[in-house]
Design a protein around this nucleic acid. Structure first.
Lengths: 225, 225
DNA sequence: ATTAAGGTTAACCTAAAGTTAAGTTTTTTT
DNA sequence: AAAAAAACTTAACTTTAGGTTAACCTTAAT
């Protein structure tokens, strides 16, 4: 089974967060939360969630503004964002789509609707973001076949190595911190030693060429062609 | 390039059909249309399109129902179906993924999005082997006769093994997760143990050669020539 | 030169897959 | 309708790939 989808909920009311968390975790999602827009942005950057639920009405930085800022971040460009809004705020919906929202959830929250909507959104985003083939440098990555080709030679990578490669190559040139990597591949609850990442990186270097995996000391790793 | 992909559009509004037809034909697709679910089903059976765009909201037989019926037809089992839906339509309709939809297109239709979505979906669905016979490596599969031939020798496979072979060989090289396999062969609701799949794989390996069935540990299985 | 971050290696551990045989269920035959 | 056979699933056990760690080594930055 693929990794649990990760959902970030941002709302200034703890009650709502609890409700969302309860319902979403029950469905097997991994949930993280934030109590305001600023925090939400931070957590989003760190956790790279698959979907973000944003309350529109929040003090200081509201949902709309948060959404706009999230959309500025390359690694979150394709994340699904849905707003949480009171029922009759039609106008906000129009503005919301402009800010980059993918959908709306209305308060009061109906649990079954919430869940089926989330499912649908994740599933909708799923098939399309999965450009199955990527080609960078002499390296081709085919997610569907779990197969990597380097200079025409097929290489079968183990799961973790493959996931790591997919992650790094999803934004070539971008530095991923160890934290990023751990969160994306292992999830925030699993604890593995720091050296583990190094070992996987080493294997990748061995198999795909040293030069493509660059270490930024004190920061993390990046993939380059 | 292979034959033009054929797309069936089903909607009760002629305007929408025209708009879809115009945009899709411009992209080089072959388009056929139907003004209601019943007609859509008929045309689908006759034309065997590669992809079907179904409006959710239609009088009499709605998109959901049509989708379900289409999924019942063996020759259309693998056809890609996407729903056409207004952005704010009731969420319960979004749960129509359960009816077997592959994706959603929202109204109002943004042409560029429409086209790129269609492209992605068709690419993803891969080569559609409509013929009943497939031949890969030394293995020939005749779906109609439920018959497999390996190096000229006929082999009679039991149902489950045959279905598994058909599934895996429908996209050689592609990895199918256990979940994929369970959903496709047993259906979403049936629960069978994990070891069951292994046993069937084992039988296939025994009968058709170990080398064709590859295990990707932690991920699933794939068929290769 | 010091030191903290990262690299390397190999041993270890574990979850996942393989195997087998013994139940079940379904289908066919008599 | 009973018996037999075939297909399917399961359970218990074995094997193994791959993931992790620990201990030690190297490097680069101040």
């Amino acid at each position: 089974m693929a990794k649990k989808p990760k959902i970030l909920c941002v709302d200034d009311e703890q009650d709502i967060l609890d409700l969302l968390t309860f319902n979403l975790e029950k469905e097997g999602y991994e949930v993280c939360t934030a109590l305001n827009g600023k925090k939400g942005l931070e957590v989003a950057k760190k956790e790279l969630p698959d979907l973000i639920i944003l309350d529109v009405m929040m003090p200081e930085m509201d949902g709309m503004e948060t959404c706009r800022e999230i959309r500025e971040i390359p690694s979150l460009r394709n994340t699904v964002i849905t707003f949480l809004t009171a029922r009759n705020e039609d106008y906000s919906q129009i503005a919301g789509f402009e800010a980059g929202a993918d959908d709306f959830i209305t308060k009061p929250i109906r649990q079954r609707l919430l869940v089926s909507k989330i499912k649908a959104l994740l599933r909708r985003s799923g098939p399309l973001d999965k450009g199955t083939e990527v080609s960078i440098g002499g390296i081709e990555i085919d997610r569907e076949k779990y197969l990597v080709t380097k200079d025409g030679v097929q290489i079968q990578l183990p799961k973790k190595e493959f996931e790591l490669l997919v992650l790094l190559s999803s934004a070539p040139g971008r530095v991923f911190t160890r934290e990023n990597i751990l969160n994306s591949i292992w999830g925030n609850d699993v604890i593995v030693g720091d050296r583990t990442i190094d070992v996987h990186i080493r294997k990748l270097r061995e198999k795909l060429g040293d030069e493509n995996f660059k270490t930024i000391k004190g920061v993390g790793y990046k993939f380059e062609a």
